[in-house]
Design a protein around this nucleic acid. Structure first.
Length: 376
RNA sequence: GGGCAGUUACCAAAGUGGCCAACUGGGGCUGACUGUAACUCAGCUGUCUUUCGACUUCGGAGGUUCGAAUCCUUCACUGCCCA
């Protein structure tokens, strides 16, 4: 993997560049659709490529390990072969599941013992075997196994958790460097900054992560319940320390506004379930604001979904029709909303990139953030 | 013509003297969702009120009772059965 920085905005820390992998190039800043179980929910790869223009998607170690399981993935020849997506894939390590499925797990120094949410069976994830699993999956970018504490974690807990995450990082890096990919193309390993909402812990973590000298670095443990302005502060603190010449990945974030704010602060990569999950639940993100498609006000609105929208669904379907589909619980509603939202997210980061290249990012972002927050 | 059963909020359907503005579904309205256990979850759904609370309701009318959706009388309507 390689990162090339093309341009930095004169009025902010925003940057434009590209990442090259053995499965193709990724233009940054980028948004990566989430495909947890080897599928971006409700969306075909054809749409993902042609209409949404996704350049890289996510998979999830925890979910793929449980189902279909390593045997199937290895026999298939890796995840790219298994699901047919021939562009880059990034896999999350399962650290987030240690957070979101916290009732079913126990953390120890050696790793995380957990029970499967599918059948209750017992398993252990360690920094080492999570690397091994991601070798089998064959992700172009694999993530370190970390602990992602909640946004309201007290200082003492955050400190202890960070020590554990750093120890796991060390072991993960070592194991990654001692092993090879299985399918003939190169893989890379991103460590993750933690430290909750505490500036000193975030600084300490960013310094530790930077010292590992990896090809890219991630910021985790944000948008997990803390105030938004705190999240922005933490991004600033961390990005001051993380190397300029390596991509920075803000994990799990976020709303369109969050993404622009983070780009302004020097983040290059994003992923979030919001465009797909909220889309399935009836919410549309547009350049003019957000719409709840179940609202009665769209009942007789026969205008196109989004006149500024770049995907075919924006012109092909009306608001009244999409509302009808949601009210009727038709599956097509979720497909249309997912395609629209993902296309919008990809348009947003693509436009941000264009503005950075032109040197007009700051002014454009300032205006966009106001519009994006409106409720239509 | 006779017998039996029934009539509760938008729909369906509990409740058979005070804990009932009334269980529960559905429908409707609104909100939430940030490295996906999520086609999920939450609130509201008689009127007025921000809340507390007040007021009017359980086919119609009248009655019994301190108190009625619940008991009695009567009228209307619906369904089933027998002629």
């Amino acid at each position: 993997m390689d990162f090339t920085l093309l341009h930095t905005d004169p009025n902010s820390n925003a940057r434009a560049g590209f990442i090259t992998t053995d499965h193709g190039t990724i233009e940054t800043p980028i948004f990566m659709p989430v495909g947890t179980v080897a599928s971006v929910k409700a969306v075909h790869f054809h749409e993902l490529k042609e209409d949404i223009k996704a350049q890289i998607i996510l998979g999830n170690t925890y979910h793929l390990y449980l189902r279909p399981g390593l045997e199937v993935l290895e026999q298939a020849g890796g995840l790219h072969k298994f699901n047919g997506w021939d562009r880059p894939i990034l896999t999350d390590s399962g650290g987030y599941q240690v957070f979101s499925l916290s009732a079913n797990r126990k953390l120890k120094e050696e790793g995380a013992y957990f029970r499967s949410h599918i059948d209750g069976s017992k398993h252990l994830f360690t920094p080492e075997n999570v690397v091994d699993i991601q070798r089998v999956i064959g992700a172009d970018i694999m993530m370190a196994f970390d602990e992602c504490p909640p946004g309201n974690a007290p200082y003492d807990y955050a400190k202890k958790s960070l020590a554990l995450t750093h120890q796991w990082l060390k072991r993960g890096v070592k194991h990654f460097d001692e092993t090879d990919g299985k399918y003939g193309y190169s893989q890379t390993f991103f460590p993750i900054v933690q430290g909750c909402v505490y500036t000193d812990l975030r600084k300490q973590s960013a310094e530790f992560v930077a010292s590992l000298g990896r090809e890219g670095n991630a910021i985790g443990g944000l948008a997990v319940g803390e105030p938004t302005h705190t999240m922005y502060e933490m991004i600033e603190v961390v990005n001051e320390i993380l190397p300029q010449d390596k991509p920075r990945y803000l994990m799990g974030v976020g709303t369109p506004q969050n993404i622009l704010e983070a780009i302004e602060r020097g983040v290059d990569m994003f992923d979030c379930v919001m465009p797909t999950r909220n889309g399935r639940n009836g919410m549309l993100f547009t350049s003019e604001g957000i719409m709840n498609m179940r609202n009665e006000k769209w009942k007789n609105d026969f205008s196109p979904l989004d006149i500024n929208g770049t995907s075919y669904v924006d012109q092909a379907y009306t608001k009244a029709y999409l509302r009808h589909l949601f009210i009727s619980k038709e599956l097509l509603a979720m497909q249309i909303a997912s395609i629209h939202n993902l296309a919008f997210y990809l348009w947003l980061v693509g436009e941000a990139r264009k503005q950075i290249m032109q040197g007009t990012f700051a002014a454009w972002k300032k205006e966009m953030v106001v519009r994006l927050g409106r409720r239509l």
